[in-house]
């Protein structure tokens, strides 16, 4: 079993349509560590030692967040700035995260077709996640295919929330039990509920 650390970040938790339910589902998954970053650090004063200890104690790091202005909510950026220290996460002797995996779980308000060179967002969604991907690379972590919900604001009206949450649960359990093959990200791949690979039996 892989040790799973889930970082959840949503500054408007109360107004969340999808993320709140995804978080509730994640909390019901046994054997994983769930951290609500905005609850733990409402005043942004991140405890570097505690966070580094957490990273050391886990094999897979999941970041679940809504895409805000083509990036993460600000607290995740603060977390990166402080926790991923030189000599710990990267640089000379910075090998603490080597071989661990990073899994992004993102909701985006735009529809899937918008995230393409000919869509109104002009780029694939992965383009906007490149900073995190490169962060993983510099920290010698494996970057897994992000799990995405498009058109998230419309999802409740279109009854897409429950299936997406169920898929999320399957993803977390699969990661925990190491029952996925080939989740390593290439090019502009993302996975949605429809493209979530089947679990393999051991």
């Amino acid at each position: 079993m892989a040790r799973l650390l889930l970082y959840y970040a949503h500054p408007g938790h109360r107004f969340s349509h999808v993320n709140a339910e995804m978080l509730a589902a994640a909390r019901r998954v046994e054997g994983i560590t769930v951290v609500d970053l905005y609850a733990e650090y409402p005043r942004h004063d991140i405890d570097i030692d505690r966070e580094q200890k957490r990273l050391l104690d886990h094999d897979i790091v999941v970041f679940q967040f809504p895409l805000f202005w083509y990036s993460t909510p600000s607290l995740i950026k603060e977390w990166q700035d402080l926790v991923l220290e030189h000599g710990f996460a990267y640089g000379k002797d910075g090998t603490a995260l080597e071989g661990k995996k990073m899994q992004l779980v993102v909701t985006a308000a735009g529809p899937a077709e918008a995230y393409a060179p000919d869509g109104y967002q002009n780029h694939h969604l992965r383009t906007f996640l490149r900073p995190l991907e490169q962060t993983a690379a510099l920290c010698k972590m494996e970057f897994l295919v992000p799990y995405v919900l498009y058109a998230s604001l419309r999802a409740p009206r279109e009854d897409r929330v429950a299936p997406h949450v169920a898929g999320y649960r399957r993803l977390l359990e699969g990661l925990r039990d190491d029952r996925f093959r080939g989740l390593l990200a290439a090019a502009d791949d993302v996975m949605t509920l429809d493209t979530l690979p089947a679990l393999v039996e051991h």
């Binding site: 999808v18 967040f65 805000f68 308000a109 919900l149």
Partner: peptide, 18 residues
Amino acid sequence: PPVGREGEAEEERARSGS
């Protein structure tokens, strides 16, 4: 989250998360 009074595109561009 933005409320879609002016249409979906507006809503999606204003903020891109949920």
